[in-house]
Every structure is written in structure tokens, then in C-alpha cells.
């Protein structure tokens, strides 16, 4: 009797996850219907976002998400791979644990603080060096890159560490240098894990809101340069959700949320199921 009850409790909780995920999709979809009916495909191809005219085209926000995460990846990936190589192949034990603690420290910092730092300390530098307002695509890309760097470096290092020592030693035993071993043995061996880790970090960057809200500018315009202020999907949601005053405006914001969820779901699923399948669970 109690046995059955307990079982049903646990089963209910487990199913609840599936229900919530499905529910999220259904709710976001239903609420975006009005905008879909009103704009159709224009919703994602038009860049005019004008609440006063009741015209909502999400192109600029979608482009902003794509551009800022792409820029962040371009900046973060080489550094993250460098850090991962440093941690798995170069650093001594003491430096490794020092770096490990630093990464823990940084993981403890809420992302909104990265945004505050970006706004108060980094944006002025960009303004001084490049001119313009400072806030914009470049600032967003850099803050986002710094934000995802610890996670990216840590998972890339973990992927590299799956290379068996004996395989590395075999390459050293043939007279290979450290770099030979890294590029010919470790990277080819851990390729799937490394790519999966990088894509997983990308998936997180797409949805990151608070680190970029401060420094993006929230301007619904297709950028003309890397310094242009612009917006992204999460930034638009964060800034406008509580200000929306018409049902079409709301519906358009739900449309944005759905677009963001689908984008990140696809990216994360590719990382998890295509690249990390083998290493996921023994």
C-alpha cells in the first residue's frame, strides 16, 4: 500500500519534468499565436520593432543573439582551448588546484555581476579606445566571452583528460614534443568531446540574459558596425516584458521567447546527443 503510494509519488515527480517542458512549449506557442497570425514569416525576417505602430519584427533581436554569441565564441574558443591545454598538459599540480579554485569562485558569481562589471569598467575602455558609446555588439561579445570562459575551459579540459596516459606516452616514446602529442593524439582522440563542450557553452551563451543586458544598448536595429548598440532576444525580453501594453506586443515577446527556447534547445541537443553521447553516462 505505502509501497505503491511511494512509487506513484516518485513517478509523478519524474513525469512532472516532461510535463513542464511540454507545457512551456505549449504555453509559449499559444501566446505567440497572435503575433504569428499578424506577421507570419515577417516576424523573423523584418527588423522593424515599433511598439507605437504595433509592428513587431524580431530580425534585429535574432541577429543580435546570433552575432553576440558568435563574437563571444570567436573570442572565447581559442582562449578556452589554450587554457584547457595549459591545465591538462602544462600546469603543475599546485597551479591546477589554484586554477580550479578560481573557476569555482567565478562560477559562484551571478551573471548579473559580470554585466555590472562590463557596464562600469569595460564599456568606458571600449569608449575610450574605439569611440562611440561603448555599449553595443563588441562590449556584449566580450562580456559574454568572459562569462562563458571558465565553464568552457573546464569542460574542454575534462574532454582532453579522457585521453589515456598510455596513448600520450606512446607518442612521447616516438620522440614527440608536447605540442606534437597535443595536436596529433589528444585533440584527435578527444575531438567529439571538445566540440561537444564548446557547443554546450554556446548553448548557454545564447540564453544568457543578465551579463549582456547592461552592455548591449537595447536598440532594435541591424548593426552597421561592431560598435553599434543593438539588442538580442533575452535582452529584449528583460527590458520590455514589464512594459508591454498591448496584447500583440505581449504575443510578440512570447514569440521571441519561443524562438530563443527553440534555438538553445537545438544547440544543446546537438551538443549532448551528437557529440557527447559516448561520454555522457557509462
Amino acid at each position: 500500500m505505502i509501497d505503491k503510494l511511494f512509487f506513484n509519488f516518485t513517478r509523478f515527480s519524474a513525469f512532472l519534468i516532461l510535463v513542464i517542458v511540454a507545457w512551456i512549449f505549449v504555453v509559449l506557442f499559444n501566446h505567440s499565436l497572435e503575433a504569428m497570425h499578424a506577421f507570419g514569416l515577417d516576424f523573423i525576417t523584418q527588423d522593424q520593432w515599433a511598439p507605437n505602430l504595433n509592428k513587431f519584427g524580431a530580425y534585429a533581436a535574432i541577429l543580435g543573439s546570433v552575432l553576440s554569441t558568435t563574437l563571444a565564441m570567436i573570442l572565447a574558443v581559442p582562449v578556452a582551448i589554450g587554457v584547457a591545454i595549459f591545465l591538462s598538459e602544462i600546469a603543475h599540480d599546485k597551479i591546477k588546484s589554484f586554477f580550479g579554485i578560481s573557476v569555482e569562485l567565478l562560477a559562484a558569481i551571478p551573471s548579473v555581476i559580470y554585466g555590472m562589471w562590463g557596464l562600469f569598467y569595460f564599456v568606458p575602455i571600449i569608449r575610450d579606445v574605439f569611440g562611440g558609446m561603448g555599449i553595443g555588439l563588441l562590449a556584449a561579445g566580450i562580456v559574454l566571452a568572459i562569462m562563458i570562459l571558465p565553464f568552457m575551459a573546464a569542460v574542454t579540459r575534462d574532454a582532453m583528460n579522457t585521453t589515456p596516459d598510455i596513448l600520450k606516452e606512446s607518442a612521447y616514446a616516438l620522440g614527440g614534443t608536447q605540442w606534437d602529442v597535443i595536436k596529433d593524439v589528444i585533440i584527435p582522440y578527444a575531438k567529439a568531446g571538445i566540440i561537444g563542450s564548446l557547443i554546450l557553452a554556446l548553448g548557454r551563451a545564447i540564453g544568457e540574459t543578465m551579463a549582456v543586458t547592461f552592455v548591449m544598448g537595447n536598440v532594435h536595429k541591424v548593426p552597421t558596425s561592431i560598435l553599434s548598440p543593438m539588442t538580442s532576444i533575452p535582452v529584449t525580453l528583460a527590458n520590455e516584458f514589464t512594459e508591454a501594453d498591448s496584447s500583440l506586443y505581449f504575443s510578440s515577446l512570447f514569440g521571441l521567447a519561443l524562438t530563443l527556447l527553440v534555438m538553445s534547445f537545438i544547440v544543446i541537443a546537438i551538443a549532448k546527443f551528437y557529440f557527447l553521447r559516448k561520454t555522457r553516462r557509462a
Binding site: L167, S170, Y172, D184, Y189
Partner: peptide, 16 residues
């Protein structure tokens, strides 16, 4: 190490 080669406990074919 090019003059003194080594074979290990387990086969260590490189991923190539």
C-alpha cells in the same frame, strides 16, 4: 626516444 623505442602494456594505436 627515437633511439630507444617502447611498446606498452596495451596496444596504443593513435586515432588515425
Amino acid at each position: 626516444r627515437t633511439k630507444i623505442g617502447m611498446i606498452f602494456q596495451k596496444p596504443t594505436a593513435f586515432p588515425m
